[in-house]
Amino acid sequence: MTITETQQEIISEFSMFEDWMDKYNYLIEMGKDMPKIDERYKTNNHLISGCQSRVWLHSELKEGKISFTADSDAVITKGIVNLLIRVFSGHTPEEILEANADFIDQIGLKDHLSPTRSNGLVSMLKQMKLYAQVYKLKQDN
């Protein structure tokens, strides 16, 4: 599935929710279900700044594709990270660098995207793109 297709899939899932509670219950569920990050990556080096809760993000390049794992001590934040991972993990650095994250707006979580918001979704996205950039540079060299 392409990044765009996954985003479309998430948009249609979210369109079924009738109110904010359904939506947040889903995010909480996604947070609880998120695959565990290897404990050794929960270090300050993997911590994303700008978040009110702590978020650790780790990436690996396998056969040209990036896989992300993450964790957070706040479950809603974790749910949102899980969505981002679902969208971006398993893609090449180029695909990740070219992709946008417009689906966040369309599923009504735009307020989480505001740079002044302290849950740092913006920082997470930036960090994912940064990893992609680094892997791309490594490949190009």
Binding site: I28, Q52, S53, A74, I76, S118, N119
Partner: peptide
Amino acid sequence: HPSDIGTL
């Protein structure tokens, strides 16, 4: 987590 409670 406090931030989750705050969000909700």
